[in-house]
Design a protein around this nucleic acid. Structure first.
Length: 943
DNA sequence: TTCTTCACG
DNA sequence: GACGTACGTGAAGAAT
C-alpha cells in the first residue's frame, strides 16, 4: 500500500543524536577492550524506547534513521566558511560513527545518507513528501535547526529529554513561531556553524524585529524605518550577508533520495541481528531487556577483559559452523539480464552489505579489462555477472574465437545498475584486496565506498602469523581450498585470459571467491574489537586504500630515452668487462653464474677464503669479492663492476622501460598494504622503493623519473625517524635531548661512548657510533656489528658493552620487548599495531632471528604507522586548502610529490606540517619529528 | 620452484 | 660448546 493518509513517518536524526549523546552521556567503554561505546549505548536505548512507545494509534508506520554524509555539502559551495571552524570529531567518538550505523542496521532500520547534503535536508525532504502524500511525520531530534519544519502534519520529539516540541517550545526558543524560525536564524547567525547573520543581532533582537515587521523580506525592504541607528545601518549594509545566511539555514526539501517513502515501512527487528550486536557491544542490561521484549533467548556475553585472556598462541580461532559449512552445497547463480541483477541489488539493499569481486583480463589494474562481477550477500549465496566473455575454446589465435559469448548483460548497462549500489554510503562493499577492485571500478568511472577488506582485517589481527592471501585465509579459517585459478587459466604458454574462460566454468570459480570473502568478513569483523586493533584497521589500513589507489593510478612520469641510453652504455661496458674477466680467467664462462665464478676463483685459481654454503656452492657475494679485491686480485674487482652494471641494466634501465604504460606514458607501481609484517608498505611491478641512490652511477637512474612540464618533483623525508622513535620508546634522555637540540646524533653517541669531544671528531669514530646506533634498531649482536664494521668480534662486543653501560635504557627496552613477545606472542607499535612473533619461543637458530625481529618491529612499525597516518591526512589536507599537486610515491620514510612549480613552496610547507604532526593526537613523541625536503625537475635532483 | 645476489629504507 | 646471525622488503638470473 502506498504511503498516504493514516501513515506516520518517523525521521530519526542519527547524526545529531550521535554528537548530543556523546557529550551528554557519561563516557562508557566496552569492558573487554576499552572500545568507547557511550554514544552507541545511548542510541540503542533511544531506539528501544521509540520501539516501546510505538504502540497504539500513534505508532509510526514508516521509519528511517538519517545521517550526515561525510565530506562537504552544497552549503560549502555557497559559502566556503560554512562550518569551517568545526574542530575534528573527538578521538573517542570517531569509532562510534560506524558502530551507530551498524546498530541501525542491526535493528533492521533503514540507514540513510546522501552525499553533498546534511541529515537535516534529507529529513526536510522526507517530511515534505510525507505531508504531500497525505500522511504525517515526526522528527526525532534535539536540533533547533529542524524546528523550522514544524507545521500541521510535522511534529518533533526531543529524544534526549524525551519531550514533545511544538509551536510553544519553538516560540520559547526563538520568540517566533516555526514558520518564522528561518528569518530569525538568518539574522541571528550561528557561531557553531559559522553562519554570519547580522553582526550585533542575536535571537532576541531578531525576534523583536521579525515580529514587528512580519517577515525577513519586509524587514529588509523597510530597513530605513528602524529607529535605532546602529541596527538600521547593519541591516542595510549587511542585507546580502543576511540573505546568504538565509540560504544556509533554509533546509532543502528537494534532496535527491534513493529510497521512496514506501520502502521505509516499519519492519520487525530480527532478534538474532539485534541481540548479536548488543551482545557484541556487551550491553548487559539492554540486551536482557530487548531479549525479553523480543521473546528471544539472552545471548551469551563475553566481556572478560582481553588482557586476562590467553592471547596469540597462533591457533586459528574456532570457526562458526555456518561459515565453514558446505561450500559444495552452495548454489551460485549466473546473472544474465537486468531483472536478474535487480533481484540481487534488492537483496543487497536489504542486507546493507555485499562482498564484491571483479574478474578481469589480467593482473595489471591499469590495463586489465572488466570481464565479470561477483556478488555475495550471505554464506553460500553468491552470483556471477558475466560481462565480457568471448567464445572460442582454446583459440586465442588469429582464427576463430573472439566472438562475444551469448547470455551476457551489456557491460555499460550492468555498470549503470551497479553504480548506485557501489557508491551508496549506506551499503558496505566488502572485498579481498579491495584496492584492486576499487581501481578497476574507478577506471569505469565508479568510486566504490564505503569499503571493508578481509585481507586488511586479517593483516590487522594476524600480522606476523601468516600471509593474508585469500587461499591462505580460506584454508586456515574456513577449512576450504578454493578452486585454483590455474585450473581455469592454465599455465605457461597455453595460459588464457579470464575472458576466454567459458561462462559456465567461470561462474563457480568467481562466485566462490565472493562467497569466501563474505564468510571471512563475517568471521573477522566481529573479532576486530576483541583483538583490540580496531583503531589500527580504521585509521591506518582501511583509509589507505583509496589514497594508495589514487597514487598508483596517477603513476610517475619516466623518460624512456634516458633509460634506453643508459642501457646501451651499460651493455657496452659489460661486454668490455666480460672480455677482460674471461681473458684473465683463461677461459670463457658465465660471469653471471655465482657457481661458475666460485669454481674459477677458488678451485682453478686456488684463492684463499672460499667458503661453501649449505647447498655446497662457494659464496661469492659482494663482501667476499671485496675482501679478495682488497688483497689485490683483479678478477673479483672486475666482477664487482660487472655485477653492478648487470644489476642496474636488468633490474632498472631495461625493466623500467617495459613498465611504462602506453596510455599514460607513466609507470604505475602497486603497493602491497599487507606486504610487510612491520606495517611498512611493499612496492611491486615495478618496485619503486629500491631505485638506486647509493652509487653515483645508480643515482643517474633517478634522473629518468621526471615531472610534467611546468611541474617539479618534491621529496619530503623524515630525518632519522627510527632513531627518534627508539629514543622515545626506550626513554633515553641523552638521545632525546640531542634530538631536541638538533645535534648530530651519531657524533653525540660517539662522544658519550668514548669520551671524545664532538668538535674535530675522527670520522672513523663517528662511523662506528653510527653503526652501533643502527645495530641497536636491528637487535644488535657482536657478530653482526663485527661484520658490518669489519672489526674483530671481541672488539665489537666491547663496543656494545660500552654502549649499554652508557645507555642502560636500551638494554631494558630490548629485554622488556623480548619478554613481552614471549608472554603475549606479539609486540606492539606505539599506535597499537600488533606484530605476532610465533617463533620467539623456538629453539635453535630461529630463536635469534625471532628475538631481533621482535626488537626491531616496534621501532620500524611505529615509523611505518607515522607515515601511514600522514599519508591518510595529506590528500584531505590538499583538497581542503585547494593546493594543486599530488602525492606520487612512498619510500618508507619519504614521500614524493608532483606539483606545479608555482605551488611548490605552499605544498612543501603544508605537507611538512602534516608529516611532522602525524604522531598526534594519539600520542605525542618526546622527540620532535623533523622533515627534510628537496626539489627538482627529476628525482635525482629532488632527493 | 629455490637459491643467490643486490637494490632500497 | 657449536650453531650462524644484524631489521624489513622485491626482482632477476642461475640452478635445480
Amino acid at each position: 500500500m502506498a504511503f498516504g493518509a493514516g501513515h506516520h513517518l518517523q525521521l530519526i536524526d542519527g547524526s545529531g543524536f550521535i554528537f548530543r549523546a556523546f557529550h551528554a552521556l557519561p563516557p562508557l567503554t566496552r569492558k573487554s577492550d576499552g572500545l568507547p561505546v557511550g554514544a552507541v549505548s545511548g542510541f540503542c536505548n533511544m531506539i528501544f524506547k521509540l520501539v516501546e512507545d510505538a504502540k497504539g494509534p500513534d505508532a509510526p508506520t514508516h521509519v528511517a534513521v538519517i545521517f550526515d554524509h561525510k565530506g562537504k555539502t552544497f552549503r560549502s559551495d555557497i559559502y566556503p566558511e560554512y562550518k569551517a571552524n568545526r574542530p575534528p570529531a573527538p578521538e573517542d567518538l570517531v569509532p562510534q560513527f560506524g558502530l551507530i550505523r551498524d546498530a541501525t542496521r542491526a535493528f533492521n532500520l533503514p540507514c540513510i545518507e546522501v552525499e553533498g547534503f546534511e541529515a537535516d535536508d534529507i529529513i526536510a525532504t522526507y517530511a515534505r513528501l510525507a505531508v504531500e502524500a497525505g500522511g504525517r511525520a515526526t522528527v526525532v531530534s534535539s536540533d533547533k535547526d529542524l524546528m523550522q519544519l514544524i507545521r500541521p502534519g510535522v511534529d518533533m520529539i526531543d529524544p534526549m529529554k524525551n519531550r514533545h516540541i511544538g509551536p510553544e517550545q519553538v516560540e520559547e526558543k526563538f520568540g517566533v513561531g516555526p514558520e518564522r524560525v528561518i528569518d530569525v536564524q538568518s539574522l541571528a547567525g550561528d557561531s557553531v556553524d559559522n553562519i554570519p547573520g547580522a553582526p550585533g543581532i542575536g535571537v532576541k533582537t531578531a525576534a523583536l524585529l521579525i515580529n514587528e515587521y512580519g517577515d525577513l523580506d519586509a524587514l529588509l525592504e523597510r530597513a530605513e524605518e528602524i529607529k535605532q541607528p546602529k541596527r538600521r545601518q547593519t541591516l542595510i549594509e549587511k542585507a546580502d550577508q543576511i540573505r546568504l545566511s538565509r540560504d544556509l539555514v533554509t533546509l532543502r526539501t528537494d534532496t535527491p533520495l534513493d529510497r521512496d517513502l514506501d520502502s521505509l515501512e516499519v519492519r520487525d527487528p530480527e532478534p538474532e541481528a539485534a541481540l548479536g550486536f548488543l551482545a557484541e557491544m556487551e550491553f548487559r542490561t539492554l540486551t536482557k531487556r530487548i531479549a525479553e521484549k523480543l521473546g528471544a533467548p539472552m545471548p551469551e556475553i563475553n566481556d572478560t577483559p582481553k588482557a586476562l585472556e590467553d592471547a596469540g598462541d597462533g591457533a586459528a580461532p574456532e570457526a562458526d559452523p555456518a561459515l565453514t559449512a558446505a561450500f559444495e552445497d552452495a548454489v551460485y547463480e549466473k546473472v544474465t539480464d537486468a531483472a536478474g541483477l535487480q533481484a540481487w541489488l534488492d537483496r543487497i539493499t536489504e542486507t546493507g552489505h555485499v562482498a564484491v569481486d571483479t574478474e578481469t583480463t589480467g593482473l595489471d589494474e591499469m590495463r586489465a579489462d572488466l570481464v565479470g562481477v561477483c556478488l555475495s550477500v550471505a554464506p553460500g549465496a553468491a552470483c556471477y555477472v558475466p560481462l565480457a566473455h568471448v567464445d572460442g575454446e582454446g583459440s586465442g589465435d588469429l582464427f576463430g574465437g573472439g566472438e562475444r559469448a551469448a547470455g551476457q548483460m551489456d557491460r555499460e548497462e550492468a555498470l549503470a545498475m551497479l553504480r548506485p549500489m557501489l557508491e551508496d554510503p549506506a551499503i558496505l562493499k566488502i572485498g579481498q584486496n579491495m584496492k584492486y577492485d576499487w581501481k578497476i571500478f574507478r577506471r569505469y568511472g565508479i568510486t566504490v565506498a564505503p569499503i571493508d577488506d578481509t585481507m586488511l582485517l586479517s593483516y590487522a589481527m594476524h600480522g606476523g602469523l601468516h600471509r593474508h592471501g585469500m587461499d591462505e585465509l580460506s584454508e586456515r579459517y574456513l577449512n576450504h581450498s578454493p578452486i585454483p585459478i590455474k585450473s581455469l587459466l592454465g599455465t605457461g604458454k597455453s595460459a588464457r585470459t579470464f575472458d576466454r574462460v567459458p561462462v559456465d566454468e567461470a561462474v563457480n570459480y568467481a562466485a566462490e571467491d565472493a562467497d569466501i570473502t563474505l564468510r571471512l568478513w563475517k568471521m573477522f569483523k566481529p573479532q576486530l574489537h576483541k583483538a583490540q586493533v580496531t583503531r589500527v584497521y580504521e585509521s591506518m589500513e582501511r583509509p589507505l586504500i583509496p589514497v594508495l589507489a589514487d597514487m598508483e593510478m596517477r603513476g610517475v612520469k619516466v623518460d624512456r630515452d634516458h633509460l634506453s641510453r643508459m642501457s646501451n652504455a651499460f651493455a657496452q661496458k659489460m661486454a668490455g668487462l666480460e672480455a677482460e674477466i674471461q681473458e684473465k680467467a683463461g677461459r670463457s664462462f658465465n660471469v653471471g653464474s655465482p657457481k661458475q665464478l666460485g669454481e674459477i676463483l677458488f678451485d682453478e685459481m686456488g684463492l684463499e677464503g672460499g667458503k661453501k654454503g649449505k647447498t655446497g656452492a662457494y659464496a661469492t657475494g659482494a663482501d667476499v669479492l671485496e675482501t679478495l679485491a682488497a688483497e689485490g686480485h683483479e678478477i673479483p674487482a672486475l666482477v664487482l663492476d660487472w655485477r653492478q652494471m648487470s644489476k642496474l641494466k636488468s633490474t632498472y634501465t631495461d625493466a623500467l622501460q617495459d613498465h611504462i604504460n602506453p596510455d599514460t606514458g607513466r609507470v604505475h607501481t602497486s603497493y602491497v598494504i599487507s606486504g610487510a609484517n612491520t606495517g611498512r608498505l611493499a612496492s611491486t611491478d615495478p618496485n619503486l622503493q629500491n631505485i638506486p641512490v647509493r652509487t653515483e652511477e645508480g643515482r643517474r637512474i633517478r634522473e629518468a623519473f621526471v615531472a610534467e612540464e611546468g611541474n617539479i618533483l618534491l621529496s619530503l623525508d623524515y630525518s632519522q625517524i627510527e632513531l627518534r622513535i627508539l629514543a622515545h620508546i626506550a626513554d633515553i634522555s641523552a638521545l632525546k635531548e640531542a634530538f631536541r637540540d638538533g645535534l648530530d646524533i651519531h657524533a653525540m653517541t660517539a662522544s658519550e661512548m668514548f669520551g671524545v669531544p664532538i668538535e674535530g671528531m675522527d670520522p672513523m669514530v663517528r662511523r662506528q657510533a653510527k653503526a652501533i646506533n643502527f645495530g641497536v634498531i636491528y637487535g644488535i649482536s657482536a657478530f653482526g656489528l663485527a661484520n658490518n664494521l669489519r672489526i674483530p668480534r671481541d672488539e665489537a662486543k666491547s663496543f656494545i658493552d660500552t654502549y649499554f653501560e652508557r645507555f642502560p635504557g636500551i638494554r631494558t627496552y630490548m629485554d622488556r620487548t623480548v619478554e613481552e613477545a614471549k608472554e603475549k606472542g606479539y609486540v606492539e607499535t606505539l599506535f597499537g599495531r600488533r606484530i605476532h612473533t610465533p617463533q620467539i619461543n623456538a629453539k635453535g637458530p630461529h630463536a635469534g632471528f625471532a628475538r631481533r625481529a621482535a626488537i626491531n618491529a616496534p621501532i620500524q612499525g611505529t615509523a611505518a604507522d607515522i607515515i601511514r597516518r600522514a599519508m591518510v591526512r595529506i590528500p584531505k589536507m590538499l583538497a581542503e586548502r585547494e593546493l594543486p599537486g599530488q602525492m606520487l610515491l612512498q619510500v618508507h620514510d619519504e614521500l614524493i610529490f608532483e606539483v606545479p612549480e608555482s605551488a611548490a613552496d605552499a605544498l612543501s610547507d603544508a605537507v611538512t606540517e602534516v608529516m611532522e604532526g602525524a604522531d598526534l593526537p594519539v600520542i605525542k613523541l618526546d622527540v620532535p619529528l623533523t622533515v627534510d625536503s628537496g626539489r627538482g625537475k627529476n628525482w635525482a635532483e629532488a632527493h
